[in-house]
Computed example of a mutant assay.
Amino acid sequence: MEINPEQINELISDRRSIYPAMYTGEVVEQHIIEQMLENANWAPTHALTEPWRFVVFSGTGLQKLGDFQAELYKENSSAKDQFDEKKFQKLKEKPLQCSHVIAIGMKRDPKGKIPEIEEVEATACAVQNMYLTATAYGIGCYWGSGGVTYLEEAKPFFGLEAQDKLLGFLFVGVPKEGKWPAGRRSPVADKVSWVLD
């Protein structure tokens, strides 16, 4: 296998969160979405539990997602007297700005031998694989964890059970021209200690 390390380095450093408002409205080709999911499936996983679970919304499915999360937000916030019409509309309409929205779930190992945090970490690695694949194709995406992500009542809609986790949504779309922002990171030397002797 011959892989140019410099291209890998460039791919990783070029990865960005590209938000739905920055999308053109064009539909991402199906083979790209399928490749993102295939690459997600090769994430590291302790004891091969492969805890990641994805539900992909596109076409009229985007409206179903928007309606579901808006209505669930309304039910929960009205019960607490905290309903916000703007938030309701945002939840309803945000998926429609995207080509695809991928719900990110973590399915708990039924034997419970693997610590939960390791299953979450494995799922996060799978999402990073999707991010990098999207970047390689020039496709924008953004992992959001707002809205209904942490509501227990949301889990069944995404095929998750009580012991599982909904970890957010990967919003995917074709970025508008000039909407790939420059990167910002402080030096890695500020975050690394070396133990040499």
Rank of each mutant, 00 (worst) to 15 (best):
87 K>C: 04
117 I>S: 07
72 L>N: 01
105 G>W: 09
124 A>N: 08
100 H>L: 14
103 A>F: 05
112 G>K: 10
127 V>S: 05
66 G>D: 08
113 K>M: 11
97 Q>P: 06
91 L>S: 01
101 V>G: 01
117 I>H: 08
117 I>N: 09
127 V>M: 09
118 E>H: 02
128 Q>K: 06
107 K>Q: 15
82 Q>V: 00
111 K>P: 06
132 L>R: 10
92 K>P: 02
123 T>G: 06
74 K>I: 10
125 C>A: 15
116 E>I: 13
127 V>F: 01
57 F>I: 12
76 N>T: 09
116 E>C: 07
118 E>T: 13
98 C>Q: 01
97 Q>T: 09
73 Y>E: 03
111 K>C: 04
116 E>P: 08
107 K>I: 13
77 S>H: 04
61 G>P: 05
69 Q>N: 10
118 E>Q: 09
59 G>A: 05
75 E>W: 01
63 Q>M: 10
105 G>Y: 09
112 G>C: 04
126 A>V: 05
74 K>C: 05
75 E>P: 02
106 M>S: 09
114 I>N: 02
135 T>M: 12
75 E>K: 10
63 Q>A: 14
104 I>N: 02
83 F>Y: 15
104 I>A: 02
118 E>W: 11
85 E>G: 02
71 E>C: 07
77 S>W: 00
77 S>K: 08
89 Q>T: 07
101 V>L: 08
95 P>M: 11
127 V>Y: 02
94 K>V: 09
110 P>R: 05
65 L>V: 10
116 E>Y: 07
81 D>L: 02
108 R>T: 15
